[in-house]
Amino acid sequence: MDRIERVTISSVTLPLSVPVSDAKVLTGRQRPMTEVAVLFAEVTDAGGASGFGFSYSKRAGGPGQYAHACEIAPALLGEDPSDIGRLWDKLAWAGASVGRSGLAVQAIAAFDIALWDMKAKRAGLPLAKLLGAHRDSVRCYNTSGGFLHAPVSSILERAAESLAAGIGGIKLKVGQPSTSVDLTRVTAVREKLGDDVPLMVDANQQWDRPTARRMCRAFEPMNLVWIEEPLDAYDFDGHAALSRAFDTPIATGEMLASAAEHMALIDAGVDIVQPDAPRVGGITQFLKVMAAAERAHLQLAPHFAREIHVHLAAAYPLEPWVEHFEWFDPLFNEHLEIADGRMHLSARPGLGVTVSDQARAWTVATHEVTA
């Protein structure tokens, strides 16, 4: 077998055209988001085969991910790229002093995803087909038009554009200081779109338990697909209690930064899990979360990073959802086909994306290690 001969790491700063705000900004806990830090990794073996992966960070953490990736990358040199599980463990031990969650595994994720991309390319298969796809397309919904900084008129305009473009559902941010404002905004969108359009809301962890119960009760008549992160991401018991108390499904998990944290959430009991492959440590760890969710008969709705998650969602037995964000479009030369409410797999091998010239122009640092 060929051995890994070169690893290239790049830090890319993706600017957002408009600063965006969710409930964390309105509560004063975070500032509006103006950019996303993206970590690229390319792994090349002695035979010239290569794989591409990425991770990301919002608001803070990007330089830390890049620095940690540069530190642990030499552990891959000389290794068989097919031994992905063993290499994940090796990378984790290379950075063991910073633990096995959070920034540490988010840096590993870029390498892990690159190794899976290489494996699928070697097999001549899209990643979903290598994993064992259950479908060739996945239901998708748009979030990027529903942030709290946008007035209702803009949200309705963006929602109409998204639905006309073939996207299947719309998600709105909630968590205003006044809950009545949330109810007014969501009611206006539901009335405009009608009952047949899938509609979700996302509080981004900003309610306490009494407020969450009141809001879940108020939203019950609106036929929502789910209510997302009504409580702190680590309040597993609180989310489970809401899942038991209300008919509207409760979704959470995007902020969890390891497979172990997801196992605790699944054990507590929740309706919909929302793992994020770059945040939990890559595809190797995501597959562990996916298996646990399947055993518990839970719905799956991966967070962000659709270029990765469309493949993973396609391999999940129960019909999932994938989140549509167009923010990463400038980074890649290829884009996923969206039609009839669904995101369609391409026939391209691996992840099916290559890095664009624009991404290279936004690159702020590059590091390479060779055998």
Results as ranks from 00 to 15, higher is better:
2 D>E: 14
6 R>D: 14
7 V>W: 00
8 T>G: 01
10 S>Y: 01
11 S>Y: 13
14 L>W: 00
15 P>L: 09
19 P>R: 00
22 D>L: 06
25 V>E: 08
26 L>T: 08
27 T>R: 08
28 G>Y: 04
29 R>E: 14
29 R>A: 15
32 P>E: 00
33 M>D: 11
40 F>P: 00
41 A>E: 13
42 E>I: 09
45 D>C: 02
47 G>Y: 09
53 G>M: 01
56 Y>R: 02
58 K>L: 15
62 G>I: 09
64 G>S: 12
66 Y>G: 03
71 E>K: 08
74 P>H: 14
75 A>C: 07
84 I>N: 03
87 L>S: 01
88 W>R: 07
91 L>P: 00
96 A>L: 12
96 A>I: 11
97 S>V: 13
98 V>K: 08
98 V>M: 11
100 R>K: 15
102 G>I: 07
102 G>W: 03
102 G>E: 02
103 L>T: 14
105 V>L: 11
106 Q>D: 02
108 I>H: 08
109 A>Y: 03
114 A>M: 06
121 K>E: 06
126 P>Y: 04
128 A>I: 01
131 L>C: 02
132 G>Y: 08
136 D>C: 04
136 D>N: 12
137 S>Q: 13
139 R>H: 09
139 R>C: 14
141 Y>N: 04
142 N>G: 15
144 S>I: 06
149 H>V: 11
152 V>R: 00
156 L>G: 04
162 S>M: 13
162 S>W: 08
165 A>M: 04
168 G>A: 06
169 G>W: 09
172 L>I: 04
172 L>M: 09
178 S>L: 15
178 S>G: 14
179 T>S: 15
181 V>G: 07
181 V>T: 15
182 D>L: 09
182 D>R: 09
182 D>I: 05
183 L>I: 08
186 V>G: 06
187 T>S: 15
190 R>D: 05
191 E>T: 13
193 L>P: 09
194 G>I: 06
201 V>D: 07
202 D>M: 08
211 T>S: 12
220 E>D: 12
220 E>W: 01
233 A>L: 10
234 Y>V: 13
234 Y>A: 14
236 F>I: 08
238 G>R: 00
246 F>L: 07
247 D>R: 15
250 I>L: 05
251 A>S: 10
253 G>N: 02
256 L>M: 09
258 S>T: 07
261 E>G: 12
261 E>P: 01
262 H>Q: 04
267 D>R: 15
269 G>F: 05
274 Q>C: 08
278 P>V: 02
279 R>T: 14
284 T>F: 01
285 Q>H: 13
287 L>I: 10
303 H>T: 07
308 I>C: 05
312 L>W: 05
312 L>F: 04
313 A>T: 03
317 P>I: 13
320 P>Y: 08
328 F>T: 10
329 D>G: 00
331 L>I: 04
345 L>I: 10
345 L>N: 02
350 G>I: 05
351 L>K: 10
351 L>E: 01
351 L>D: 00
362 W>C: 04
365 A>C: 03
368 E>H: 11
368 E>T: 15
